[in-house]
Design a protein around this nucleic acid. Structure first.
Lengths: 252, 252
DNA sequence: CGCATAATTGACGGTTTTCAAGCACTGTGG
DNA sequence: CCACAGTGCTTGAAAACCGTCAATTATGCG
Protein backbone atom coordinates (compact mmCIF):
# COMPACT_ATOMS: atom_id res chain seq x y z
CA UNK A 1 0.00 0.00 0.00
CA UNK A 2 2.89 2.30 0.77
CA UNK A 3 4.66 1.62 -2.48
CA UNK A 4 2.29 0.35 -5.15
CA UNK A 5 3.82 -0.82 -8.43
CA UNK A 6 2.25 -0.82 -11.87
CA UNK A 7 2.60 -4.55 -12.08
CA UNK A 8 0.61 -5.14 -8.91
CA UNK A 9 -2.50 -3.85 -10.65
CA UNK A 10 -4.69 -6.17 -12.69
CA UNK A 11 -3.38 -6.53 -16.19
CA UNK A 12 -6.64 -5.22 -17.63
CA UNK A 13 -6.86 -1.46 -18.02
CA UNK A 14 -7.91 0.38 -14.94
CA UNK A 15 -7.51 4.01 -15.87
CA UNK A 16 -8.71 5.37 -12.59
CA UNK A 17 -6.49 3.19 -10.45
CA UNK A 18 -3.48 3.78 -12.68
CA UNK A 19 -3.87 7.50 -12.80
CA UNK A 20 -4.01 7.80 -9.05
CA UNK A 21 -1.23 5.31 -8.37
CA UNK A 22 1.38 7.11 -6.31
CA UNK A 23 4.63 5.39 -7.17
CA UNK A 24 6.98 7.25 -4.93
CA UNK A 25 10.74 6.94 -5.16
CA UNK A 26 12.69 6.11 -2.02
CA UNK A 27 14.84 8.93 -0.68
CA UNK A 28 17.97 6.83 -1.01
CA UNK A 29 17.18 6.37 -4.72
CA UNK A 30 16.66 10.08 -5.30
CA UNK A 31 19.06 12.33 -7.18
CA UNK A 32 18.56 15.05 -4.61
CA UNK A 33 19.58 12.78 -1.77
CA UNK A 34 23.27 13.77 -1.50
CA UNK A 35 22.14 17.37 -1.34
CA UNK A 36 19.35 16.59 1.10
CA UNK A 37 21.80 14.89 3.39
CA UNK A 38 24.16 17.84 3.33
CA UNK A 39 21.28 20.07 4.26
CA UNK A 40 20.00 17.75 6.96
CA UNK A 41 23.45 17.76 8.45
CA UNK A 42 23.80 21.50 8.05
CA UNK A 43 20.41 22.15 9.62
CA UNK A 44 21.53 20.40 12.76
CA UNK A 45 25.09 21.66 12.87
CA UNK A 46 25.22 25.25 11.68
CA UNK A 47 22.30 27.40 10.71
CA UNK A 48 20.54 26.51 7.46
CA UNK A 49 17.31 28.56 7.46
CA UNK A 50 13.92 26.90 7.64
CA UNK A 51 11.99 26.49 4.42
CA UNK A 52 15.03 25.72 2.26
CA UNK A 53 13.82 22.23 1.58
CA UNK A 54 10.12 21.73 0.81
CA UNK A 55 9.24 18.04 0.78
CA UNK A 56 6.58 16.25 -1.27
CA UNK A 57 4.80 19.17 -2.84
CA UNK A 58 1.86 17.89 -4.96
CA UNK A 59 1.51 18.97 -8.62
CA UNK A 60 -1.57 18.37 -10.78
CA UNK A 61 -1.45 17.00 -14.31
CA UNK A 62 -0.75 19.81 -16.79
CA UNK A 63 0.47 22.18 -14.09
CA UNK A 64 3.91 23.80 -14.47
CA UNK A 65 6.46 24.09 -11.67
CA UNK A 66 8.34 26.79 -13.58
CA UNK A 67 8.22 28.38 -17.00
CA UNK A 68 10.89 29.49 -19.41
CA UNK A 69 12.14 33.00 -18.47
CA UNK A 70 10.80 32.73 -14.91
CA UNK A 71 13.40 33.97 -12.40
CA UNK A 72 15.34 31.07 -10.97
CA UNK A 73 14.74 30.18 -7.34
CA UNK A 74 14.69 26.40 -6.83
CA UNK A 75 15.72 23.06 -8.14
CA UNK A 76 13.23 20.20 -7.92
CA UNK A 77 13.39 16.45 -7.53
CA UNK A 78 10.54 14.32 -8.87
CA UNK A 79 9.19 12.28 -5.98
CA UNK A 80 6.34 10.60 -7.88
CA UNK A 81 4.78 10.94 -11.32
CA UNK A 82 6.56 12.41 -14.34
CA UNK A 83 7.34 15.69 -16.07
CA UNK A 84 8.29 17.05 -19.46
CA UNK A 85 10.57 20.01 -20.08
CA UNK A 86 10.19 22.08 -23.22
CA UNK A 87 11.66 25.16 -24.83
CA UNK A 88 10.45 27.74 -27.29
CA UNK A 89 12.79 30.04 -29.20
CA UNK A 90 11.70 33.24 -30.86
CA UNK A 91 8.22 32.22 -31.85
CA UNK A 92 9.26 28.88 -33.24
CA UNK A 93 7.11 26.00 -32.11
CA UNK A 94 7.55 24.45 -28.67
CA UNK A 95 9.88 21.47 -28.45
CA UNK A 96 10.33 18.79 -25.83
CA UNK A 97 13.89 18.58 -24.53
CA UNK A 98 13.46 15.99 -21.80
CA UNK A 99 11.31 13.82 -19.56
CA UNK A 100 11.85 13.42 -15.82
CA UNK A 101 10.87 10.48 -13.63
CA UNK A 102 10.96 9.83 -9.87
CA UNK A 103 14.39 10.45 -8.39
CA UNK A 104 15.47 12.77 -11.20
CA UNK A 105 16.13 16.50 -10.90
CA UNK A 106 14.56 19.40 -12.75
CA UNK A 107 15.92 22.91 -13.19
CA UNK A 108 19.53 22.19 -12.24
CA UNK A 109 20.86 23.88 -15.36
CA UNK A 110 19.32 27.15 -14.14
CA UNK A 111 21.66 27.19 -11.11
CA UNK A 112 23.74 30.38 -11.21
CA UNK A 113 21.60 31.68 -14.07
CA UNK A 114 19.01 34.41 -13.73
CA UNK A 115 16.10 32.53 -15.29
CA UNK A 116 14.92 29.04 -16.13
CA UNK A 117 15.83 28.11 -19.71
CA UNK A 118 12.82 25.82 -20.13
CA UNK A 119 9.31 25.07 -18.92
CA UNK A 120 8.59 22.04 -16.71
CA UNK A 121 5.08 20.55 -16.84
CA UNK A 122 3.60 17.57 -15.01
CA UNK A 123 2.50 14.71 -17.31
CA UNK A 124 0.28 13.28 -14.55
CA UNK A 125 -0.56 13.91 -10.94
CA UNK A 126 2.91 14.10 -9.40
CA UNK A 127 4.82 15.31 -6.39
CA UNK A 128 8.19 17.02 -6.05
CA UNK A 129 10.72 18.00 -3.43
CA UNK A 130 11.85 21.57 -3.79
CA UNK A 131 15.22 23.04 -2.81
CA UNK A 132 15.06 26.83 -2.52
CA UNK A 133 18.52 27.80 -3.71
CA UNK A 134 17.74 31.48 -3.15
CA UNK A 135 17.36 30.84 0.58
CA UNK A 136 20.66 29.03 1.01
CA UNK A 137 23.38 30.54 3.18
CA UNK A 138 25.88 32.70 1.33
CA UNK A 139 28.95 30.61 1.97
CA UNK A 140 30.58 27.96 4.09
CA UNK A 141 31.36 24.29 3.97
CA UNK A 142 27.78 23.09 3.24
CA UNK A 143 27.65 25.39 0.21
CA UNK A 144 30.91 24.02 -1.11
CA UNK A 145 29.66 20.45 -0.84
CA UNK A 146 26.40 21.40 -2.47
CA UNK A 147 28.22 23.14 -5.29
CA UNK A 148 30.40 20.10 -5.87
CA UNK A 149 27.28 17.91 -6.15
CA UNK A 150 25.68 20.33 -8.59
CA UNK A 151 28.81 20.42 -10.73
CA UNK A 152 28.84 16.65 -10.87
CA UNK A 153 25.17 16.58 -11.87
CA UNK A 154 25.63 19.21 -14.55
CA UNK A 155 28.70 17.46 -15.92
CA UNK A 156 26.70 14.26 -16.31
CA UNK A 157 23.87 16.23 -17.88
CA UNK A 158 26.22 17.66 -20.49
CA UNK A 159 27.62 14.22 -21.23
CA UNK A 160 24.11 12.84 -21.51
CA UNK A 161 23.17 15.61 -23.92
CA UNK A 162 26.14 14.74 -26.08
CA UNK A 163 25.09 11.11 -26.14
CA UNK A 164 21.57 12.19 -26.99
CA UNK A 165 22.70 14.39 -29.84
CA UNK A 166 24.86 11.70 -31.35
CA UNK A 167 22.11 9.13 -31.06
CA UNK A 168 19.33 11.29 -32.43
CA UNK A 169 21.21 12.86 -35.23
CA UNK A 170 22.58 9.74 -36.87
CA UNK A 171 19.88 7.18 -36.13
CA UNK A 172 16.76 6.02 -37.91
CA UNK A 173 13.29 6.30 -36.41
CA UNK A 174 13.38 2.68 -35.31
CA UNK A 175 16.74 3.11 -33.60
CA UNK A 176 15.63 6.26 -31.83
CA UNK A 177 12.47 4.73 -30.48
CA UNK A 178 14.11 1.48 -29.41
CA UNK A 179 16.75 3.51 -27.64
CA UNK A 180 14.12 5.71 -26.06
CA UNK A 181 12.24 2.74 -24.66
CA UNK A 182 15.42 1.15 -23.31
CA UNK A 183 16.45 4.44 -21.76
CA UNK A 184 13.08 4.82 -20.03
CA UNK A 185 13.30 1.25 -18.85
CA UNK A 186 16.76 1.58 -17.33
CA UNK A 187 15.99 4.94 -15.76
CA UNK A 188 12.92 3.51 -14.05
CA UNK A 189 14.81 0.44 -12.94
CA UNK A 190 17.67 2.48 -11.49
CA UNK A 191 15.21 4.25 -9.21
CA UNK A 192 13.64 1.04 -8.03
CA UNK A 193 10.61 0.98 -10.32
CA UNK A 194 9.48 -1.75 -12.71
CA UNK A 195 11.40 -1.43 -15.95
CA UNK A 196 9.69 -3.98 -18.15
CA UNK A 197 6.13 -2.77 -17.72
CA UNK A 198 5.34 0.90 -17.60
CA UNK A 199 3.06 3.60 -18.89
CA UNK A 200 4.05 6.16 -21.48
CA UNK A 201 2.65 9.16 -19.64
CA UNK A 202 3.62 11.43 -22.52
CA UNK A 203 1.76 11.65 -25.84
CA UNK A 204 3.05 10.35 -29.17
CA UNK A 205 3.44 13.98 -30.20
CA UNK A 206 5.65 14.65 -27.16
CA UNK A 207 7.80 11.64 -27.96
CA UNK A 208 8.06 12.76 -31.57
CA UNK A 209 9.02 16.26 -30.55
CA UNK A 210 11.68 14.87 -28.23
CA UNK A 211 13.11 12.42 -30.78
CA UNK A 212 12.69 14.63 -33.81
CA UNK A 213 10.00 12.54 -35.48
CA UNK A 214 6.45 13.11 -36.63
CA UNK A 215 3.90 11.66 -34.23
CA UNK A 216 2.67 9.42 -37.05
CA UNK A 217 6.14 7.92 -37.35
CA UNK A 218 6.25 7.25 -33.61
CA UNK A 219 2.93 5.49 -33.86
CA UNK A 220 3.97 3.44 -36.88
CA UNK A 221 7.25 2.32 -35.34
CA UNK A 222 5.60 1.39 -32.05
CA UNK A 223 3.07 -0.80 -33.84
CA UNK A 224 5.86 -2.32 -35.90
CA UNK A 225 7.81 -3.12 -32.72
CA UNK A 226 4.65 -4.64 -31.29
CA UNK A 227 4.07 -6.81 -34.37
CA UNK A 228 7.71 -7.96 -34.31
CA UNK A 229 7.20 -9.20 -30.77
CA UNK A 230 9.82 -6.98 -29.15
CA UNK A 231 7.23 -5.14 -27.10
CA UNK A 232 3.59 -5.46 -26.22
CA UNK A 233 1.69 -2.26 -26.65
CA UNK A 234 -1.77 -1.34 -25.60
CA UNK A 235 -2.32 2.34 -25.96
CA UNK A 236 -0.02 3.98 -23.43
CA UNK A 237 0.91 0.78 -21.63
CA UNK A 238 4.25 -0.73 -22.64
CA UNK A 239 5.50 -4.21 -21.94
CA UNK A 240 9.08 -4.92 -22.90
CA UNK A 241 9.16 -8.52 -24.06
CA UNK A 242 12.49 -8.85 -25.81
CA UNK A 243 15.18 -6.49 -24.64
CA UNK A 244 17.76 -8.11 -26.94
CA UNK A 245 15.85 -7.24 -30.08
CA UNK A 246 15.52 -3.65 -28.92
CA UNK A 247 19.23 -3.43 -28.19
CA UNK A 248 20.07 -4.81 -31.61
CA UNK A 249 17.70 -2.35 -33.23
CA UNK A 250 19.25 0.54 -31.31
CA UNK A 251 22.76 -0.39 -32.41
CA UNK A 252 21.57 -0.58 -36.03
CA UNK B 1 51.32 42.53 -35.58
CA UNK B 2 50.23 41.56 -32.11
CA UNK B 3 46.69 40.74 -33.17
CA UNK B 4 46.51 39.86 -36.86
CA UNK B 5 43.03 39.36 -38.30
CA UNK B 6 41.99 37.16 -41.20
CA UNK B 7 40.74 40.22 -43.06
CA UNK B 8 44.10 41.94 -42.89
CA UNK B 9 45.56 39.30 -45.16
CA UNK B 10 45.33 39.64 -48.89
CA UNK B 11 42.03 38.36 -50.18
CA UNK B 12 43.79 35.84 -52.40
CA UNK B 13 44.47 32.48 -50.81
CA UNK B 14 47.68 32.33 -48.84
CA UNK B 15 47.62 28.92 -47.18
CA UNK B 16 50.95 29.37 -45.46
CA UNK B 17 50.16 32.76 -44.00
CA UNK B 18 46.68 31.71 -42.94
CA UNK B 19 47.77 28.50 -41.30
CA UNK B 20 50.34 30.28 -39.20
CA UNK B 21 48.21 33.27 -38.34
CA UNK B 22 48.01 33.43 -34.55
CA UNK B 23 44.72 35.12 -33.81
CA UNK B 24 44.86 35.30 -30.08
CA UNK B 25 41.88 36.21 -27.94
CA UNK B 26 42.27 38.99 -25.38
CA UNK B 27 42.20 37.84 -21.77
CA UNK B 28 39.20 40.04 -21.04
CA UNK B 29 37.30 38.26 -23.83
CA UNK B 30 38.21 34.78 -22.55
CA UNK B 31 35.78 32.41 -20.87
CA UNK B 32 38.41 31.51 -18.31
CA UNK B 33 38.92 35.12 -17.31
CA UNK B 34 36.61 35.23 -14.27
CA UNK B 35 38.38 32.13 -12.99
CA UNK B 36 41.81 33.50 -13.84
CA UNK B 37 41.07 36.63 -11.92
CA UNK B 38 39.97 34.70 -8.87
CA UNK B 39 43.20 32.74 -9.01
CA UNK B 40 45.34 35.81 -9.57
CA UNK B 41 43.75 37.34 -6.52
CA UNK B 42 44.08 34.14 -4.55
CA UNK B 43 47.72 33.71 -5.50
CA UNK B 44 48.49 37.08 -3.95
CA UNK B 45 46.19 36.88 -0.95
CA UNK B 46 46.10 33.34 0.37
CA UNK B 47 48.09 30.43 -0.91
CA UNK B 48 47.17 29.02 -4.30
CA UNK B 49 50.03 26.70 -5.28
CA UNK B 50 52.27 27.44 -8.24
CA UNK B 51 51.57 25.63 -11.48
CA UNK B 52 47.80 25.73 -11.16
CA UNK B 53 47.46 27.98 -14.16
CA UNK B 54 49.58 27.19 -17.24
CA UNK B 55 49.34 29.99 -19.78
CA UNK B 56 49.61 29.80 -23.57
CA UNK B 57 50.58 26.22 -24.03
CA UNK B 58 51.10 25.51 -27.78
CA UNK B 59 49.30 22.58 -29.46
CA UNK B 60 50.05 21.29 -32.94
CA UNK B 61 47.42 20.51 -35.55
CA UNK B 62 45.97 17.02 -34.98
CA UNK B 63 47.34 16.79 -31.44
CA UNK B 64 44.95 15.99 -28.58
CA UNK B 65 44.92 17.79 -25.25
CA UNK B 66 42.95 14.94 -23.68
CA UNK B 67 41.22 11.76 -24.79
CA UNK B 68 37.98 10.09 -23.83
CA UNK B 69 38.46 7.99 -20.66
CA UNK B 70 41.64 9.86 -19.68
CA UNK B 71 41.60 10.75 -15.97
CA UNK B 72 40.41 14.31 -15.45
CA UNK B 73 42.94 16.88 -14.30
CA UNK B 74 42.42 20.22 -16.05
CA UNK B 75 40.07 22.45 -17.90
CA UNK B 76 41.39 24.38 -20.87
CA UNK B 77 40.68 27.70 -22.53
CA UNK B 78 41.41 28.13 -26.22
CA UNK B 79 43.77 31.06 -26.57
CA UNK B 80 44.26 30.83 -30.33
CA UNK B 81 43.32 28.37 -33.07
CA UNK B 82 40.42 25.92 -32.82
CA UNK B 83 39.52 22.47 -31.55
CA UNK B 84 36.99 19.72 -32.12
CA UNK B 85 35.61 17.42 -29.43
CA UNK B 86 34.39 13.96 -30.32
CA UNK B 87 32.98 10.88 -28.64
CA UNK B 88 32.91 7.20 -29.43
CA UNK B 89 30.52 4.78 -27.77
CA UNK B 90 31.00 1.04 -27.70
CA UNK B 91 32.67 0.61 -31.04
CA UNK B 92 30.23 2.82 -32.89
CA UNK B 93 31.88 5.37 -35.17
CA UNK B 94 33.40 8.56 -33.80
CA UNK B 95 31.15 11.59 -33.74
CA UNK B 96 31.87 15.29 -33.41
CA UNK B 97 30.02 16.90 -30.53
CA UNK B 98 31.46 20.40 -30.63
CA UNK B 99 33.96 22.93 -31.92
CA UNK B 100 35.84 25.37 -29.72
CA UNK B 101 37.25 28.75 -30.68
CA UNK B 102 39.42 31.31 -28.89
CA UNK B 103 37.99 32.34 -25.53
CA UNK B 104 35.96 29.14 -25.17
CA UNK B 105 36.53 26.39 -22.62
CA UNK B 106 37.17 22.68 -23.13
CA UNK B 107 36.69 19.88 -20.65
CA UNK B 108 34.46 21.73 -18.19
CA UNK B 109 31.88 18.94 -18.20
CA UNK B 110 34.55 16.61 -16.76
CA UNK B 111 34.72 18.70 -13.55
CA UNK B 112 33.82 16.48 -10.62
CA UNK B 113 33.92 13.43 -12.89
CA UNK B 114 36.71 10.88 -12.88
CA UNK B 115 37.44 10.94 -16.61
CA UNK B 116 36.97 13.09 -19.67
CA UNK B 117 33.82 12.09 -21.58
CA UNK B 118 35.27 13.13 -24.94
CA UNK B 119 38.44 13.67 -26.92
CA UNK B 120 39.68 17.18 -27.76
CA UNK B 121 41.83 17.61 -30.86
CA UNK B 122 43.38 20.73 -32.39
CA UNK B 123 42.08 21.59 -35.87
CA UNK B 124 45.11 23.78 -36.55
CA UNK B 125 48.19 25.03 -34.74
CA UNK B 126 46.66 26.42 -31.55
CA UNK B 127 47.42 27.46 -28.02
CA UNK B 128 45.54 26.93 -24.76
CA UNK B 129 45.58 28.07 -21.17
CA UNK B 130 45.34 25.19 -18.75
CA UNK B 131 43.81 25.23 -15.26
CA UNK B 132 45.00 22.26 -13.20
CA UNK B 133 41.92 21.54 -11.12
CA UNK B 134 43.70 18.68 -9.36
CA UNK B 135 46.17 21.15 -7.87
CA UNK B 136 43.60 23.52 -6.48
CA UNK B 137 43.28 24.03 -2.73
CA UNK B 138 40.74 21.79 -1.04
CA UNK B 139 38.39 24.50 0.18
CA UNK B 140 37.98 28.14 1.01
CA UNK B 141 36.51 31.26 -0.49
CA UNK B 142 38.42 31.09 -3.81
CA UNK B 143 37.12 27.58 -4.38
CA UNK B 144 33.55 28.68 -3.75
CA UNK B 145 33.88 31.47 -6.29
CA UNK B 146 35.46 29.11 -8.78
CA UNK B 147 32.70 26.56 -8.27
CA UNK B 148 30.05 29.22 -8.82
CA UNK B 149 31.69 30.18 -12.11
CA UNK B 150 31.87 26.56 -13.20
CA UNK B 151 28.21 26.02 -12.37
CA UNK B 152 27.28 29.04 -14.44
CA UNK B 153 29.35 27.77 -17.35
CA UNK B 154 27.89 24.29 -17.16
CA UNK B 155 24.36 25.66 -16.92
CA UNK B 156 24.90 27.60 -20.10
CA UNK B 157 26.44 24.55 -21.70
CA UNK B 158 23.35 22.47 -20.89
CA UNK B 159 21.07 25.16 -22.25
CA UNK B 160 23.17 25.36 -25.39
CA UNK B 161 22.99 21.59 -25.78
CA UNK B 162 19.22 21.77 -25.56
CA UNK B 163 19.13 24.41 -28.24
CA UNK B 164 21.44 22.30 -30.34
CA UNK B 165 19.33 19.18 -29.96
CA UNK B 166 16.14 20.96 -30.89
CA UNK B 167 17.72 22.62 -33.90
CA UNK B 168 19.42 19.53 -35.22
CA UNK B 169 16.59 17.18 -34.71
CA UNK B 170 13.83 19.24 -36.30
CA UNK B 171 15.60 21.18 -39.00
CA UNK B 172 16.44 20.53 -42.62
CA UNK B 173 20.01 20.38 -43.90
CA UNK B 174 19.78 23.96 -45.15
CA UNK B 175 18.49 25.19 -41.81
CA UNK B 176 21.19 23.35 -39.88
CA UNK B 177 24.01 24.71 -41.99
CA UNK B 178 22.69 28.27 -42.04
CA UNK B 179 22.36 28.08 -38.28
CA UNK B 180 25.82 26.63 -37.95
CA UNK B 181 27.39 29.43 -39.94
CA UNK B 182 25.51 32.08 -37.98
CA UNK B 183 26.50 30.44 -34.73
CA UNK B 184 30.17 30.39 -35.73
CA UNK B 185 29.92 33.99 -36.81
CA UNK B 186 28.41 35.21 -33.56
CA UNK B 187 30.78 33.18 -31.42
CA UNK B 188 33.79 34.65 -33.20
CA UNK B 189 32.36 38.15 -32.97
CA UNK B 190 31.68 37.81 -29.25
CA UNK B 191 35.36 37.12 -28.65
CA UNK B 192 36.50 40.08 -30.68
CA UNK B 193 37.24 38.28 -33.95
CA UNK B 194 35.89 39.01 -37.43
CA UNK B 195 32.48 37.38 -37.81
CA UNK B 196 31.77 37.93 -41.48
CA UNK B 197 34.96 36.46 -42.89
CA UNK B 198 36.49 33.36 -41.40
CA UNK B 199 38.02 30.00 -42.18
CA UNK B 200 36.26 26.70 -41.66
CA UNK B 201 39.17 24.96 -39.98
CA UNK B 202 37.18 21.72 -39.77
CA UNK B 203 36.50 19.38 -42.68
CA UNK B 204 33.13 18.92 -44.37
CA UNK B 205 33.03 15.49 -42.80
CA UNK B 206 33.49 17.00 -39.33
CA UNK B 207 30.69 19.49 -39.97
CA UNK B 208 28.50 16.69 -41.23
CA UNK B 209 29.23 14.54 -38.21
CA UNK B 210 28.41 17.45 -35.93
CA UNK B 211 25.19 18.39 -37.72
CA UNK B 212 24.09 14.86 -38.51
CA UNK B 213 24.51 15.14 -42.27
CA UNK B 214 26.58 13.38 -44.92
CA UNK B 215 29.61 15.36 -45.99
CA UNK B 216 28.20 15.42 -49.52
CA UNK B 217 25.10 17.17 -48.21
CA UNK B 218 27.23 19.76 -46.41
CA UNK B 219 29.11 20.39 -49.62
CA UNK B 220 25.94 20.66 -51.69
CA UNK B 221 24.21 23.05 -49.30
CA UNK B 222 27.28 25.27 -49.01
CA UNK B 223 27.54 25.61 -52.79
CA UNK B 224 23.80 26.27 -52.95
CA UNK B 225 24.17 29.02 -50.34
CA UNK B 226 27.05 30.41 -52.37
CA UNK B 227 24.99 30.40 -55.59
CA UNK B 228 22.08 32.10 -53.82
CA UNK B 229 24.39 34.93 -52.82
CA UNK B 230 24.02 34.49 -49.07
CA UNK B 231 27.68 33.58 -48.65
CA UNK B 232 30.84 33.60 -50.67
CA UNK B 233 32.72 30.37 -50.48
CA UNK B 234 36.17 29.53 -51.62
CA UNK B 235 37.25 26.20 -50.26
CA UNK B 236 37.55 26.65 -46.50
CA UNK B 237 37.20 30.42 -46.55
CA UNK B 238 33.73 31.77 -45.77
CA UNK B 239 32.42 35.25 -46.38
CA UNK B 240 29.01 36.01 -44.99
CA UNK B 241 27.35 38.36 -47.47
CA UNK B 242 23.70 38.35 -46.48
CA UNK B 243 23.01 37.57 -42.85
CA UNK B 244 19.27 38.18 -43.33
CA UNK B 245 18.90 35.40 -45.86
CA UNK B 246 20.73 33.00 -43.55
CA UNK B 247 18.50 33.95 -40.63
CA UNK B 248 15.40 33.38 -42.72
CA UNK B 249 16.70 30.03 -43.86
CA UNK B 250 17.45 29.04 -40.27
CA UNK B 251 13.97 29.93 -39.13
CA UNK B 252 12.50 27.93 -41.99
C1' DC C 1 55.92 15.61 -59.33
C1' DG C 2 52.82 12.13 -57.58
C1' DC C 3 50.10 10.10 -54.26
C1' DA C 4 46.67 10.43 -50.61
C1' DT C 5 43.12 12.90 -48.87
C1' DA C 6 39.34 16.11 -49.18
C1' DA C 7 35.73 18.32 -51.80
C1' DT C 8 32.45 18.49 -55.45
C1' DT C 9 28.86 16.86 -58.43
C1' DG C 10 25.42 13.48 -60.41
C1' DA C 11 22.02 9.65 -60.22
C1' DC C 12 19.26 6.65 -57.59
C1' DG C 13 16.74 4.54 -53.79
C1' DG C 14 14.97 4.37 -49.17
C1' DT C 15 13.06 6.53 -45.18
C1' DT C 16 10.32 9.93 -43.27
C1' DT C 17 7.19 13.73 -43.63
C1' DT C 18 2.98 15.48 -45.04
C1' DC C 19 -1.79 15.35 -45.92
C1' DA C 20 -5.96 13.08 -45.15
C1' DA C 21 -9.25 10.01 -43.20
C1' DG C 22 -11.01 6.79 -39.83
C1' DC C 23 -10.84 4.88 -35.21
C1' DA C 24 -10.42 4.55 -29.99
C1' DC C 25 -10.48 6.42 -25.78
C1' DT C 26 -11.76 9.97 -22.20
C1' DG C 27 -14.50 12.87 -19.91
C1' DT C 28 -18.83 15.43 -19.83
C1' DG C 29 -23.50 16.11 -19.41
C1' DG C 30 -28.03 14.54 -19.99
C1' DC D 1 -25.94 4.59 -17.71
C1' DC D 2 -25.40 6.12 -22.26
C1' DA D 3 -24.61 9.45 -26.02
C1' DC D 4 -21.63 12.78 -27.69
C1' DA D 5 -17.78 15.65 -28.57
C1' DG D 6 -13.00 16.34 -28.40
C1' DT D 7 -8.63 14.71 -28.48
C1' DG D 8 -5.16 11.60 -29.41
C1' DC D 9 -3.85 7.54 -31.98
C1' DT D 10 -3.61 4.71 -36.09
C1' DT D 11 -3.28 3.81 -40.93
C1' DG D 12 -2.81 4.84 -46.01
C1' DA D 13 -0.84 7.10 -50.18
C1' DA D 14 2.19 10.37 -52.42
C1' DA D 15 6.11 13.41 -52.41
C1' DA D 16 10.27 15.45 -50.59
C1' DC D 17 14.49 15.05 -48.69
C1' DC D 18 18.74 13.09 -47.68
C1' DG D 19 22.06 9.19 -47.72
C1' DT D 20 24.64 6.12 -50.48
C1' DC D 21 27.43 4.95 -54.32
C1' DA D 22 30.39 6.43 -57.84
C1' DA D 23 33.16 9.39 -60.74
C1' DT D 24 35.76 13.62 -61.15
C1' DT D 25 38.41 17.45 -59.64
C1' DA D 26 41.12 19.96 -56.24
C1' DT D 27 44.41 20.33 -52.54
C1' DG D 28 48.08 19.24 -49.44
C1' DC D 29 52.18 16.94 -48.24
C1' DG D 30 56.28 14.46 -48.91
Amino acid sequence: MDKPRFSTHHSQCEPQAIRDALVEVDCEDCGLDPICMVLDYAEEASGVPEGVLVRRHPVERGETIFRQEDPFHSIFAVKSGSFKTSVEYAGRSRQIIGFQFPGELIGVEAMSQKTYPCTARALERSSVCQLRIDRLPESGRPLETLQASIIQLLGREVTFSHQLVSSLVHQSAEQRISGFLLSLSSRLTRRGMPGTEFILTMSRTDIGSYLGLASETVSRVLTRLGRSGAIRLRRKRILILDRNTLEQLTAG
